[in-house]
Design a protein around this nucleic acid. Structure first.
Length: 890
RNA sequence: GGGGCGGUGGCGGAAUCGGCAGACGCAGUUGACUUAAAAUCAACCGGUGGAAACACCUUGAGGGUUCAAGUCCCUCUCGCCCCACCA
């Protein structure tokens, strides 16, 4: 998921007061850190160890070695210890086990930029906690990790400082692996996959060939978006903003004609619109639906005076009789032919201007429509009306057919254009019960419902506000058009085919060979992978460095054996990431992209977690990829990922996206060194609603740190068993099982922040119960047991230490089962029910939990306070809302 | 212009179904412990009035439905995101 968002649009407008608050926060944050740094040498503790409370631990050991009940919480020590132990024991190794249900938990892989960002942790930590939870629930969980290692940043860096992308990338990967291990994640590293590794990209190339053989990869000369800075073509999805700038570097994008490779993603447009087999967030489904932009209507063939057919697409065939002119995109192939000699110079001038505009400011401020009459005419096939043909840059060659019929009476853009150039306006839809529309006097286009008029045999046909076949007017006209052979029902998409060629070095080579005689042919599969040469020069020339390599491109034609050349473009990295979930299954398998045995057991992905910014890119490409490969017999099922959940973004303390240039980046390593991974994990789960994200607050982490330390203190404390009342013990047990129910529910629903608050609450109650003498009781022991099981997915290290070394339970807590809540124990005996009089809460009455409605009502009416507010009147109505509330109306 | 998401204390947030708004935490105030600091512990902590009991107000604004609205409906408003001459 190499994509990095970079927005040059207007920044969030923080109010003056808000900014002040933020600044104050930042200043305060610095203070404790500085104080802490000083405190370590002052305390004369070893620099690495005992960062937490160094003095106290030293004192405790000296002063009372026998009572040694409590040792200091030293996350830096226990975390390293358990990470090593788990690795040694291969605790998180996932292998096929048919005796258990499988669960494939996938979280988006990072681009190896160099350092793990707090945003990576924010995405991965809750995903890890949930994978651990599923494991405790009895699933055989696969939770792999890898690196999306090809891409521009490494190559740009190479151009800048000459370090080979391969070297830099693999160094970065090494560092990021270490950082991920320090998080205490349960990634199965034996399944790691790196897309820039030849044993990986061999199969990326193989997939390209499959798509080519299926007829889904094709070559096309097209005006493509081109970034003059990155010297590469960009996918439509990678051009950003009103000024059409490059997603990566911000440079304004220009148009350039190049021969490129495309995948026919549009072939799957209709299927991609169906989400009935997957549990994906509504927002992503909506984003993908809008991105594909399906519209239903008709294609209709007009004719020029010379008899040339002009195909147009319209969503409103019911307004065909109101078409009073046509508009072509300036680049439309028929423009030259229809243009009259008198209009030639004006048309040429307009075309030149439109072409210039398309560079940068085509979509800039000026919304005024412009156009030029060609001097040519067309015939409307429904009524043989002779209508003028214009050209205008508001008609795009890239959408539909590049030509439109204009119905000014019922389309706002056409209306504005007609009024500006004095073109005829003929109403053909009449709103019912209103004065007849007058084409010359209408102040605006009418786009609402009505009946058809001026439309020959269709007059009086109802037209509603529905689209396509649901609209009787549209439906009838379509049928008639088909009958007459002048048009047919048609569907048009905004979605376009996926342009995958990149004029770059650091990507998977496109395994194609061009021969002067035999044209393009794939590299024979037994010659894969086409390896990237290591000796290339880093020069931003506008051509792929592979093209400039003296020998690499020279090869022989797989058909005739004569000299031929390789494709020197490489693939979009989204191609690599479209199938990484399959490579994890068997990263070293060499008989195919994956081992079918592994596929049959693990696929499809059960839960997929990652950022919503990939909604219309990666998440659409991977679905396309899976469906295409399904049709090729490589994959099975219709969808690659059954359940998707997106996390929000962690912003800097200044409420801006974190970036080095803004200097607001929070370094996770610093936090881990200071607080320990468990605390950082807990805080990342706690500090915001996961799917929302929030600005980072460095003070808030103190709360999570305090909670973890309090847990440590309580579990390591050897308070003597006391004499607790039955009530205290019962209350403790109730709270434990209530919490268990809540935490279970929250894990199921990805509600991570409330998991932590529930655990905090329970810990507070356990402190109270200990004060009440509950320590050592059966209820207390059960509470400790369940508490550590619930803590284990969140804070795996401290949970293990307390479980194994303090409660002396069998290693490992991560191999224990998730406890089952005792519904009986969770039930309340007495419940407090608020009583409202005329909508205001006036009293709260205590009733037994199994009291029926009548009892609750009687108790409420017996309350003196309630009676006071009823002022002696009889109630009109008494509503008992289950066991939640009583409402009395007087 | 179209589509999506959101607005709850000083801050992050909580609130299955329409049923006690503000759980949990941060920050803050006061106190205990300490030579001191840190850490820890205890109490307070939406607003107004009040010594208090308590009363009234409060989920962006206004209206509606309802015994009851943060939650449902309508109108408006602000913020963020995505798509935008889409025929």
């Amino acid at each position: 998921m190499a994509a990095k968002k970079k927005k040059t649009t207007v920044k969030k407008k923080a109010t003056a007061t808000k900014k002040k608050v933020v600044v104050a926060k930042v200043k305060k944050v610095i203070k404790p850190i500085a104080a802490h740094k000083k405190a370590v040498p002052a305390g004369k503790a070893p620099a690495k160890k005992a960062v937490q409370r160094p003095v106290r631990s030293a004192v405790a050991k000296k002063a009372a070695p026998k009572a040694a009940a409590r040792s200091a919480y030293e996350p830096q020590v226990i975390e390293k210890k358990w990470q090593a132990q788990w690795e040694k024991d291969k605790l998180y190794r996932s292998v096929i086990d048919n005796s258990r249900p499988k669960h494939y938990a996938l979280t988006m892989l990072p681009y190896p930029s160099g350092d793990l960002h707090i945003g990576h942790w924010y995405a991965m930590t809750p995903s890890d906690a949930r994978a651990r939870y599923m494991r405790m629930k009895g699933y055989n969980v696969l939770f792999p990790m890898g690196f999306d290692a090809f891409g521009l940043p490494a190559e740009n860096a190479a151009i800048k400082d000459g370090v080979h992308p391969m070297k830099r990338t693999f160094q970065n990967i090494e560092r990021m692996r270490k950082q991920m291990r320090s998080m205490g994640t349960m990634f199965d590293w034996e399944r790691e996959a790196v897309s820039a590794d030849p044993e990986y990209y061999k199969w990326t190339e193989w997939f390209f060939i499959q798509l080519y053989k299926m007829g889904l990869a094709y070559r096309k000369m097209a005006a493509v978006d081109w970034c003059p800075h990155c010297n590469t073509t960009l996918a439509r999805e990678q051009v950003w903003g009103d000024d059409r700038h490059c997603e990566r570097c911000g440079t304004p994008v220009i148009k350039k004609d190049l021969e490129q490779w495309f995948f026919k993603t549009t072939k799957y447009a209709d299927e991609l619109l169906r989400f009935d087999e997957i549990d994906w967030p509504q927002t992503v489904r909506t984003l993908q639906t809008n991105w594909i932009g399906r519209s239903e209507g008709a294609s209709v063939v007009f004719k020029t005076e010379a008899g040339d057919p002009i195909e147009i697409f319209t969503t409103r065939p019911d307004t065909l009789w109101g078409a009073t002119f046509m508009v072509f995109a300036p680049e439309h192939p028929l423009v030259e032919k229809v243009t009259s000699p008198e209009q030639k110079s004006a048309v040429e001038a307009y075309k030149r201007q439109a072409a210039r505009q398309s560079d940068i400011e085509r979509e800039a401020v000026d919304k005024e429509k412009t156009g030029v009459f060609t001097g040519g005419y067309a015939f409307n096939p429904v009524n043989q009306a002779r209508i003028p043909i214009w050209i205008a840059d508001y008609v795009l060659m890239s959408y539909g057919t590049g030509a439109i019929m204009a119905v000014p009476a019922h389309d706002e853009r056409d209306f504005a254009f007609a009024r500006k150039y004095g073109l005829k306006v003929i109403p053909v839809i009449q709103p019912e019960g209103q004065p007849d529309l007058d084409g010359d006097a209408m102040p605006a286009a009418y786009v609402g419902e009505g009946v058809m008029v001026n439309s020959a045999q269709f007059n009086a046909t109802q037209v509603n506000d529905q689209k396509g076949r649901k609209n009787p007017g549209i439906s009838k006209v379509i049928d008639w058009l088909a009958q007459q052979g002048i048009g047919k029902e048609a569907v048009n998409y905004r979605y376009r085919d996926w342009l995958i060629s990149r004029q770059r070095y650091w990507g998977a080579p496109i395994p194609m060979i061009h021969c002067k005689i035999h044209g393009w042919n794939p590299v024979p599969e037994d010659q894969l992978p086409v390896l990237l040469p290591e000796d290339v020069e880093w020069k931003p020339t506008g051509e792929s460095p592979l093209k400039l390599h003296p020998t690499w491109k020279n090869t022989t034609c797989p058909i005739c054996g004569e000299p031929a050349v390789r494709e020197t473009d490489t693939m979009d990295t989204f191609m690599c990431s479209s199938w990484y979930h399959l490579r994890y299954l068997s990263p070293h398998y060499d008989q195919g992209p994956f081992d079918p045995k592994e596929y049959d057991y693990w696929m499809p992905v059960d839960t997929y977690t990652g950022g919503i910014e990939h909604a219309t890119m990666h998440l659409l490409y991977t679905r396309f990829f899976h469906k295409a490969m399904r049709d090729d017999g490589v994959t099975e099922g219709n969808e690659p990922m059954l359940q998707l959940r997106n996390q929000g973004m962690v912003l800097g303390v200044d409420n801006e996206k974190m970036s080095k240039s803004r200097g607001n980046v929070i370094a996770p390593d610093v936090l881990v060194n200071r607080y320990g991974a468990d605390t950082v994990r807990a805080y990342l789960m706690f500090f915001a609603r996961w799917e929302m994200g929030a600005p980072w607050d460095s003070q808030g982490i103190e709360g999570s740190a305090r909670w973890i330390r309090r847990a440590w203190t309580l579990f390591t404390d050897r308070t003597r068993p006391g004499e607790a009342s039955d009530e205290t013990k019962k209350n403790l047990r109730r709270k434990v099982h209530q919490t268990l129910k809540r935490v279970t529910h929250n894990f199921e629903n990805f509600e991570f922040n409330t998991i932590i608050s529930a655990l905090m609450e329970l810990l507070n109650d356990m402190y109270k119960a200990r004060e009440g003498g509950a320590a050592g009781s059966a209820e207390w022991n059960e509470a400790q047991d369940i508490y550590l099981r619930m803590l284990a997915p969140v804070a795996p290290h401290i949970a293990e230490e307390l479980w194994t070394n303090y409660l002396h339970k069998p290693y490992s807590v991560h191999q224990q089962s998730w406890p089952k809540a005792d519904e009986e124990a969770a039930k309340e005996d007495m419940i407090e029910i608020p009583v409202q009089v005329n909508g205001k809460v006036r009293d709260r009455v205590l009733v037994s939990a199994d009291a029926d409605e009548e009892e609750i009502k009687a108790t409420a009416l017996a309350s003196e306070i309630v009676r006071k507010y009823m002022e002696g009147k009889d109630p009109n109505k008494v509503i008992v809302a289950q066991k939640r509330l009583v409402s009395i109306v007087v």
